[in-house]
Nucleic acid binder design. Sequence first.
DNA 1: GAAAACTATTTCAAGCCTAAAGTTTTTTTG
DNA 2: CAAAAAAACTTTAGGCTTGAAATAGTTTTC
Lengths: 201, 201
Amino acid sequence: MKALFKTAGRAYKAHHALPPDAGTIADVNHDNVVKTISPDWVDGETKVMESPADHGQDLRLWLRLLTCSTLIESEIRRRLREQFDCTLPRFDLMAQLERAKAGMVLGELSKRMMVSPGNITALVERLVESGHVTRTVSAADRRVQIIALTSFGRAEFEKMATAHADWIAKLFDVITARDGKILFDRLGKLKRSVVTALARD
Amino acid sequence: MKALFKTAGRAYKAHHALPPDAGTIADVNHDNVVKTISPDWVDGETKVMESPADHGQDLRLWLRLLTCSTLIESEIRRRLREQFDCTLPRFDLMAQLERAKAGMVLGELSKRMMVSPGNITALVERLVESGHVTRTVSAADRRVQIIALTSFGRAEFEKMATAHADWIAKLFDVITARDGKILFDRLGKLKRSVVTALARD
DNA sequence: GAAAACTATTTCAAGCCTAAAGTTTTTTTG
DNA sequence: CAAAAAAACTTTAGGCTTGAAATAGTTTTC
């Protein structure tokens, strides 16, 4: 595949730090940061706690959630880049295609990946260039493009998917099955809460 | 502030779909997608379940976690853009600065926000241009730049922070305090698991 | 005190991502 | 059927992000 791009992953990243999940965002990566933290934080948190309806609890939960997913996501991006010279969006796109034997329409890819159509255009273009996918104009409807994995693309993806599953398993190593179940369950509730709130518009 | 940029938020986005958190990633945003889903998915999940050490459970948990945070994050980006013509990175940077009365060194910002230094350079540049922050070369060490909120920046930030806390509270509305506590707690465990795994390198 | 090592920041190339404004093709409607 | 509407993409401008290389200033070492 020979270096399609110079960089692309985000090795750092983990925005959002509003009331900073007490000592936890910072202490995760830079030991020397912690000492500078305590006094400000108390203020920040106190302030938040005083707002109506206990927003503080929700905010802290949100920040911790974000910290977790960013931490994991960054690591996966880094490994995909270092070990496979691949980005997460490329991996995701191939993951979608893997289960669509007959290929998938560009718009469908966009919907499933929850990214804008214009984004997919360029992403697919690069994947075509590197020989991972093909793009065919549909005979039935000439507006439509069908994207499918090449056998090379499929082979590459299998390698990455195996490694990926392994990385996740190792990262989640210490979590007991029971806690995993609880998390999964409560995150489901959270998702429903968010979706419900979003629907109220 | 008059339109600093044309776009910037990601209204969609929510990559990763490896074994697709059954019916949940897709059904969240595009009603018409659901019908195309069922058969592929079962296969996907079955396959994953068969892998050693029950990676499937971890993978599903990871995907659900990612779905949740992406969902919330996208919405926040969207609202920041629509209601305040601001991006999440800008908001985050100001949030960091808000609790640093005397300003903060660029490198410190980079560490706290967990993004690369080169990124902060441009972000700060734009915030200086729009009058939200100031950038001063330190007298003690001329390599160092001290970034601080202007009073305008502070005022703008306060408005956004208030709205932001409110958005989160509304999104988390349905979650009981008890479930919130459980989530917060287990996410703490998860974070420790991840950090531990990352340290083993 | 000069050379070497280290630190803070900027610059660069390239990919990611969005919203909005086109383009082309198909479907709907009067 | 022809005009209008809708659908599937592509294009464009512009912000975000990284890793690596370069710049400039400070500290350490001999």
